[in-house]
Amino acid sequence: MSWMEDLLLLGIGGIAVSVYGVVAGLLLLGIDRKLVARMQARIGPPIRQPFVDVQKLFTKQNIVPEHAVAWLFNGAPVVALVSSLVILLYLPIGSIPPVLSGYGDLILIMYLLTIPALALVAGGFSSGSPYATVGAQREMVTMISYELPLAIVFIAIAWRMSADGIGDPFSLVTIMQYPLWGLVGPLGLIGGLILLFILLLVTPAELSRIPFDTPEAETELAGGLLVEYSGKNLAMFYTAQGVKTLVMASILIALFLPWNPSGLLGLGGILAAGIDIAFFLLKLVVVVFASVTLVRAMVARFRITQVVGMYWLFLGLMGIIALILLGIDAIGGA
């Protein structure tokens, strides 16, 4: 009977995480919009605005363009939303371990992260619009660009842990148990900070936000990838955007800011979980503010060639420096 219980738990957990993913994701988008508005001296929309938007989009007509490949065009938003929700199943929430803990690790997450982007690309190409085609090409190039620094971050952390003889270093549960900051000396600390910086800069590209919103680029491509999308398909892409924001922030928290206050306060049981989740949500807002809101209020959009140059040369180089620093630290410490 045990496997049936597991399956039941998994089902309930999956539904709960999906609801949490959609609600928290849209909430993060709302907070981001409000904060950026305040920084631009605007009043901004109410925080519940993304919910209103999605609700309205679901009631609107869903138009499939004449030249579109209909099954792919309609399928892409579902794939994008579902795949981003699946990543959440592998990520811890506060002190609650991931629903699918033990079934997948950082490597799997890295592969899963490409699926929403690939769904966007497929949707863009299948819509038959030249704007979306250009947007899809740019999305692919952006993806290729940020994969290298992202991989360096994941591998550097796992490698540093394995150097200290910690088993299963790619598992998020392990990483949560042994925060990077506790393992390293001063050199490794600098390396870790560089890795944090890299991940903060990869996040806006992963989420197609300014200055890396070249695939959507409102003033250039009129929305690019999403230009032909409307109604419930657009609502699903928009929700997926929220979930992706949540996913990226959760990954960053799991890797670099894994602390929970319940241990410090000496609490236990349901109260501890509650406080941890509240603290986790607070961390989410801070991370989104630092990596998305602040960045997009500060700079102009880059050209696609500049995006590639920045990720491969600048961030790639910094990643290697961080790796070397961590390496020296590991040899010195061991």
């Binding site: 631009q40 001296a41 605007r42 680029a217 003033t219 700079v299 102009a300």
Partner: peptide
């Protein structure tokens, strides 16, 4: 001009 570049903060400042 800066709005075309995607730099909306400066756009709001200029118009203010």
């Amino acid at each position: 001009a800066v709005h075309e570049l995607g730099f909306d903060s400066l756009f709001y400042l200029a118009w203010r």
